[in-house]
Amino acid sequence: MSDQVPVRRVQLLLLSGYALHELALVRAALIGANRLAGREIFQISLATLDVAPVKDEAGLSLTVPQLQPQLASDLVFVLTGALRPARRVIELLNRDAMLVGIGWGVFWLAQAGLMNGYKVSVHWQQAEHYLEQFPQTAISSNLFELDRNRFSCGGGMAALDLTLAIIARLAGNELAGAVSESLMNERMRSGEERQRIPLQNQLGSGVQPKLVKAVSLMESNLEEPLTTDEIADRVCVSRRQLERLFKQHLNSVPSQYYLDLRLQRARQLLLQTSKSIIQIGLSCGFSSGPHFSSSYRNHFGTTPREDRLRHQPGRRSTSVGDET
C-alpha cells in the first residue's frame, strides 16, 4: 500500500518561542512513517521566518534556513510560542497547501487570514482569547480538527495525535497505527475527544459518579452558582454525603471547590481577554466588583487589576470596571 502513497513535501515552520517537545513529537511521527513505509513518503525540512538562529521557549538556539517562496510545500506545520505578526506569510505560504497550526501556530495562521471559514481547535485555556481576536472563525473544544486543508490542535501531546491523524488521512490508518505503536503510544486519540481530562480519569476508577456529576454541575453553572443544597439535590445525595465525597476525594468542601473553579475561570478571562474586570466578575458569579476583588485577593494574593497589569504591562485601566 505504501508504494501507492505519493511523496509529500513537509515544512516545519519554526517561529520564536516554539515548544521543542511539540517539534519532537511531530518529527518523530513523520520520520517513523517514513521508516515503517520503507521509503521517504514525507520529505521533511525545517524553516523559519526569523533571522537565524531561531530560539525555542527555553532559549535553545537552532539554526535553520529561512522559508523561501520558491520552496513550495504540500504540508506546512506552524510552531510558535506567542501571537506575533504574521509578516510576509501570504506570499510565502500557498493557500492551497495543507496548513497545520500547533498551539499558538493556530493564532498565527488566523492572524494571516488563513483560517477564515475553517473550524479550528485551540487550547482550552486560550479559547476566550482566540474568540476575541478572531471572531470570524469557528472554534472547537475537540482535541484536534481536520477541516479540509486546515488542521489544528492546542499543542502539547495533541501535536502527536494530530500528526498521526494526518498520516492516517494521507497514507492510511494501518501506517498511522503502526507509527503509534512504534512510539509506544498508549492509543491513538480521535479528534472528537475532549481536551480536558475528565475528573474520573484524574482521580482514578474509584471516584464516585455522584462526585463527577456534582463537579460537572459546578463547571456548567459558573455565572449563576448553585447552592450546595441544590447540587446535592440534583445528584440525589444528602448535603452531608456530598461534603463527605468532596473531603474524601478532593480534600475540600463543595463551596470552596466551587469558589476555586470560579476564580480560576475569572483569572483565565482576566489574562486572555480585554473584558472589564467587573464584567469578568459578574460572568463568574460574583455579585459586585468589591466582592470579586476581595475573593480574588484572598485566593491569589493580588487584586485582579494588579494581576492583569503584571501580565499585560502595556495595558492601562480604561473603565470603572478595571479599577478593582
Rank of each mutant, 00 (worst) to 15 (best):
A266I: 06
L183F: 15
R88H: 14
Q111D: 02
A82R: 13
S140I: 03
T302F: 07
L67K: 00
T227F: 04
E223V: 10
G113P: 02
L199G: 10
E181D: 14
V54K: 00
L12D: 01
P53D: 00
W108S: 08
F292Y: 14
A86N: 15
K210H: 11
S220F: 09
Q133N: 01
E306M: 07
D3A: 11
A47L: 02
D307P: 11
G314K: 03
Q272C: 08
Q126E: 14
L36N: 04
T63Q: 05
W108D: 07
I102G: 03
L13S: 11
G32T: 00
A97F: 03
K247F: 04
S216W: 00
S288K: 12
S16T: 08
G113K: 00
L211M: 06
N251I: 05
S180H: 07
S276H: 00
H123T: 15
V122P: 13
L259W: 15
A82P: 08
Q200P: 00
A159V: 11
I166F: 12
G204R: 11
W124V: 09
K55P: 02
W108L: 10
A138W: 06
L269M: 04
V212W: 08
Q126S: 14
L114E: 09
A19P: 13
A138N: 07
M184T: 10
Y296I: 02
G289L: 02
G38Q: 02
S294Y: 04
E57G: 03
F77P: 09
L282W: 13
A214F: 13
L83G: 09
P313G: 03
Q200A: 07
A168M: 13
Q202C: 06
Q66F: 00
